[in-house]
Simulated assay, not measured.
Amino acid sequence: MSKSKNSLSKRDEIIEVASKLFYEQGYHCTGVQQIIQEAGAAKGTFYSHFKSKEELGIAWLKARHATWNHWLLQFINPKKTPKSKIVGIFDFLGQWMQDANFRGCAFLNTMCETPDCENALRLEISNHKRELFELFRALTAEHHATKTKIEQEQIATTLFILFEGTLIQLQNFQDLSFLQVAKKQVTALL
Rank of each mutant, 00 (worst) to 15 (best):
M1L: 05
K3R: 14
K5H: 15
K5M: 10
S7Y: 04
S7T: 11
S7N: 10
L8E: 07
L8W: 06
S9N: 11
S9T: 14
E13S: 09
I15T: 01
I15F: 06
I15L: 04
K20Q: 13
L21P: 00
F22Q: 07
F22S: 01
F22T: 05
Y23P: 00
G26H: 05
Y27A: 08
H28E: 15
H28F: 04
G31Q: 11
V32G: 03
Q34R: 15
Q37M: 04
Q37I: 08
A41K: 04
A41L: 04
K43P: 00
K43E: 13
G44Y: 07
T45E: 15
F50W: 09
K51F: 08
K53V: 04
K53E: 06
E55H: 10
I58C: 15
A59K: 06
K62N: 10
K62I: 10
A63V: 05
A66D: 14
T67N: 08
T67K: 12
W68P: 00
W68A: 13
W71D: 12
W71F: 14
L73K: 14
F75T: 08
F75D: 12
I76K: 03
N77A: 09
P78F: 03
K79P: 01
K79I: 00
K80M: 06
K80D: 14
K83D: 06
V87N: 08
I89A: 05
I89W: 02
D91F: 06
F92N: 09
G94T: 02
Q95G: 15
Q95V: 13
Q98S: 07
D99C: 13
D99V: 04
R103G: 07
G104W: 09
A106Q: 09
F107E: 02
T110S: 08
M111Y: 13
C112T: 14
C112Q: 14
E113L: 03
E113S: 03
E113I: 01
T114A: 09
T114H: 02
P115V: 07
P115A: 13
D116G: 09
L121M: 05
L121Q: 07
L123G: 04
E124Q: 08
I125F: 01
R130T: 06
E131G: 10
F133E: 08
F133H: 12
E134D: 04
A138P: 01
L139W: 07
L139A: 07
L139D: 03
H144W: 01
A145S: 12
A145W: 09
T146L: 05
K147F: 11
T148D: 12
T148H: 10
I150V: 13
Q152T: 01
E153W: 01
E153H: 13
Q154N: 13
Q154S: 08
Q154M: 13
A156F: 12
A156Q: 10
T157E: 14
T157K: 13
L159C: 02
F160K: 09
F160C: 03
L162K: 07
E164R: 01
G165E: 01
T166L: 06
I168K: 08
Q169D: 15
Q171T: 11
N172Q: 15
N172E: 14
N172W: 07
N172Y: 14
F173I: 01
F173K: 11
Q174G: 05
L176C: 08
Q180S: 06
V181D: 10
A182S: 10
K184F: 01
K184D: 12
Q185G: 04
V186K: 03
T187D: 13
A188Q: 15
L189P: 00
